Computed example of a mutant assay.
Amino acid sequence: MSLTVIGFFAEGYRSLQRISLPVDRLNVFSGANGVGKTNLYRALELLQAAATGELSRKLATEGGMESALFAGWQSTKKPVRIILRVQLQDVLADDNEYEYEISIGLVPQKNGAALGAAFIFEPQVKEERLLHRSRKRAYPLLERQNSTLTALGSDGVKTSLGIDLLASETALANLQDPDRYPELHNVREALRSWRFYHGFRTDAESCLRRDCLAVTSPTLESDGANLAAVLATLTHIRGDTTDLDSVIDDAFPGAVLEVPPPRRTASFGMRFSDYPLRTFDSVELSDGTLRYIALVGALLAYRLPPFIALNEPETSLHPDLLQPLARLIARASARTQVWIVTHSEILANALSEESGVRVREVIRENGRTWINGLSITGDFVT
């Protein structure tokens, strides 16, 4: 089952007080620094982390719950929560939808000490829910309220489960029985297969500059560590480099990407029109050239993930590369969903020109992140 994202909701997370929006094939968000564009991206990462079992670690790297909670005014009548929700639709059946929601709160304390099996700034899962909607009917596949967990099996029987979950663990990641809970398994695997690409390292120690093991690699890893193998898979497994040659020539006219047949390791280099007799290895390439090749690997791989998110892909790129990058992104959006966060007006305009998509302006409004033209009901009106 292939699932596409059709909706996203976040509440109480950093600058996201409460926001709900539809998700299209290509989604482009632009705005000034500090308005909260990256928080939209991070909230999606947290949804994936709920599926991979890394939610607690991911929030810990952000400074724990104290740092992740919405910093603006909140009602004292409601518990302090981060609520995240994603809506997914079966590609082959429009009326077959799934909705996963997780509510994360603070660890109870007494006299400054944490109560229960959790550290004081850890996220604590308060509620989880997975709904299935079909033919205008909705029923829960998974419901969790603190330590109480129920799930609907493939036999149609709803049962209470006694699995040993810590408060910082998610049921979505830990309830792994694809035969008994096939739909939960499909949703979990769909979220796990998302890819987030940001901040490709290009320094001397970057994995992009090193050869990698020669293992057939249909998809680029999030850090780009298997880039050479991804390029080798396109060149020597698929055996058709027409698209690869085209996007390289579009960005670097007259240049050729050299990908020798792998042995134990895979490697690549570039031959430029100014130096036709010399191949520059990956360790010699400029930061911008190397980063662009990594984006090519992410967006032109043999098998694209169902959802790709790019955070400020223009970083370190020369302005002349932004129009070719827009064409590369538009090409990828014909094969998968793409979510772009950028503060480059040049890239945003190029994406609009190449794809016809409307760029959404992210703004800061009364201390919260908002999007121009978004209604409070979660639809774009302009």
Rank of each mutant, 00 (worst) to 15 (best):
148 T>I: 14
175 L>V: 12
122 E>F: 01
156 G>L: 06
252 F>A: 11
354 E>G: 12
289 T>C: 13
74 Q>T: 03
171 A>D: 08
276 P>G: 11
102 I>T: 14
345 E>Q: 08
143 E>Y: 07
290 L>T: 04
167 A>M: 05
342 T>V: 09
246 S>K: 03
289 T>R: 13
102 I>P: 01
267 S>M: 02
190 A>Q: 03
326 A>E: 08
244 L>W: 03
215 V>C: 10
295 L>E: 04
178 P>V: 15
151 A>E: 15
172 L>C: 13
148 T>M: 09
305 P>L: 02
180 R>I: 09
161 L>E: 11
244 L>A: 04
213 L>E: 14
301 A>W: 01
198 H>Q: 15
219 T>R: 00
58 K>V: 04
42 R>L: 07
142 L>D: 02
289 T>Q: 15
107 V>L: 09
253 P>F: 00
217 S>H: 02
165 L>H: 08
14 R>V: 01
17 Q>M: 07
212 C>V: 01
11 E>Q: 11
180 R>N: 06
376 I>D: 15
298 A>N: 02
335 R>T: 06
50 A>F: 11
32 A>V: 14
85 R>H: 09
26 L>R: 04
190 A>C: 06
263 R>V: 13
201 R>H: 12
252 F>Y: 12
55 L>D: 01
40 L>A: 12
248 I>M: 09
197 Y>M: 10
333 S>E: 13
322 L>P: 01
149 L>Q: 03
281 D>K: 04
369 T>L: 11
146 N>Y: 15
127 E>G: 13
69 L>D: 00
37 K>P: 04
122 E>Y: 03
55 L>I: 14
93 A>R: 15
155 D>Y: 06
345 E>F: 05
233 T>Y: 09
262 P>E: 10
325 L>N: 04
291 R>W: 05
312 E>R: 08
343 H>Y: 12
13 Y>K: 01
256 V>Q: 13
